[in-house]
Design a protein around this nucleic acid. Sequence first.
DNA 1: AGGAAATTGAAATTCATTTTCAATTTCCAG
DNA 2: CTGGAAATTGAAAATGAATTTCAATTTCCT
Lengths: 164, 164
Amino acid sequence: MKLRSSEASASNSSQNIIESKEKLKAFLKKKGFKSTRQRDIIVTEFLKSREHVTAEELYNRINKKYKEIGFTTVYRTLKLLAESGLAAEQIFADNLMRYEPLSEEEHHDHLICVHCGSITEFENPKMERLQKNIANEFGFYIVNHKMEFYGYCRRCRGSARTLS
Amino acid sequence: MKLRSSEASASNSSQNIIESKEKLKAFLKKKGFKSTRQRDIIVTEFLKSREHVTAEELYNRINKKYKEIGFTTVYRTLKLLAESGLAAEQIFADNLMRYEPLSEEEHHDHLICVHCGSITEFENPKMERLQKNIANEFGFYIVNHKMEFYGYCRRCRGSARTLS
DNA sequence: AGGAAATTGAAATTCATTTTCAATTTCCAG
DNA sequence: CTGGAAATTGAAAATGAATTTCAATTTCCT
């Protein structure tokens, strides 16, 4: 089991940021889009965060330093990142569109605490295999999947007395 | 593997409808709510459909026969069914709230065709066990989970030439 | 039957997401 | 280096699904 929780080490992050920014630049060029100061700032902040952010959350964070960057541009840049394959769009139980940095082909699933809201990511090879087997039984070709566990994380499991 | 696709046999459905309606009645009484003509019609139509409907879809269906029943009432009745445990609320990739009839404690997952939109349900004991094991490793207590496979169903896999 | 409490449904509201549009910026061709 | 076509920006408006409001109506307990 490969853990990739939000609390995990952030080493190599500056290297990853540079790499990702290069990828975005290539994507922009290929599509005839332009590189701008705003996009650069937004992408940098987004990749630094390494969280599942909504457009509004990222905008608020950016707005503290860069008053002149508008919500719409943050929103559009996140969409652009999703198109270019550098971010994944995900909707959890709160029904807000969230974005997370995505490198290469990795796919991970989520443990979401309904008490504190923490999101822990994990990858599990057994799970991947089982999913493929199930799909095969139905003649189904999986392009993408979504798996979320909602419940109580280790910390909240102890403190929440409301467990039924 | 237990199949429960939308195309599966609908035998016993009238029996199930009566049963479910009794359950709703009990729920209403317990809560001090009232039984109404509208609720009866909406619940009947909902249970008959045995699909993952949005409030609007169900409203449109009902509106053909019963012009006097408003959207709001359909919406509220679906919420009520969800509260009473007779329906499950689910949001798929199109980001619309859908409701499906829910009997007892069953939980099933979904194969969603991105080409024709069909939703097939399945249950898999191995999957349930693996999910619990994974959660245990993280000290996580699962209350609920969501698993969806997006891809091409048997039928569309053949006809869609756009598979990369 | 009487009336308190719940329900109904049309309309209004909310709120995240998306689009519009005029002003500005980017960047390629010359 | 420019000039200017094309893309971008950001404020504001629009969209659209979900939810709430409220006056009129219905339910159902006593």
